[in-house]
Amino acid sequence: MTMIELKHVSKIYGSGQARVVAIQDINFKIAPGEVALLMGPSGAGKSTLLTIAGSLQKPSSGEVLIAGQAVSKLSTRELSQLRLSELGFVLQAYNLVPFLTVAEQFQLVDRIKPSGNLSREELEKLLKRLDIKQLLNKYPNQLSGGQRQRVSIARALYPNPSVILADEPTASLDSERAVAVGQLFQQLAQEYHKAILLVTHDQRLETYADHIYQMLDGKIQVPAN
């Protein structure tokens, strides 16, 4: 069983002489409990691939399947619903609303999606696990980079999605914290049975990945290990 699968996905911007192939014939899949690493230099197409895998934009050709649903057949509204319930994002700029406290970040999810989220007990366990329980009344700008990263991960996990997509999750973290984040993703994948895709330059994370994909010029160069 796979949680996320890309089949022959390509993305082409523009046409004629302005035609740019951002990614070409991408194939990969991630099963529950697995961590996949997508690596490569800037301009390799990693962000484009992440936006397509996250159903934020549609591919020019090929198919994306998330929790068994073909993304290309969904309307904008259904895509929003899919992102809300099946996808958790951990973004480079942190996926936190700046004017909400940590507790209110979870309340916002409850208001949009009243059911299917982590229970109170599960959330408490996750907050303890991430060592952020004491930060519930803090605003994002009152947190350190590491704390924001962990709150961001908790926020992504709270709607209980099948897939976690993370964009440069260890950027601006020191080695000790980067290793801790790698371990955390590995443990979360196993404990919560999530399929996790990490887009990163950070080779320190390779230890914690089940699959490593190297991208160059819009193509995956190194097949899954």
Binding site: G54, L56, R77, S80, Q81, L82, R83, L84, S85, L87, F89, L91, A93, N95, V97, P98, L108, I112, K113, P159
Partner: peptide, 12 residues
Amino acid sequence: QNFAVMRAQGIP
């Protein structure tokens, strides 16, 4: 940018 993040998270 905040709206883009919220939209990415599926907030309608």
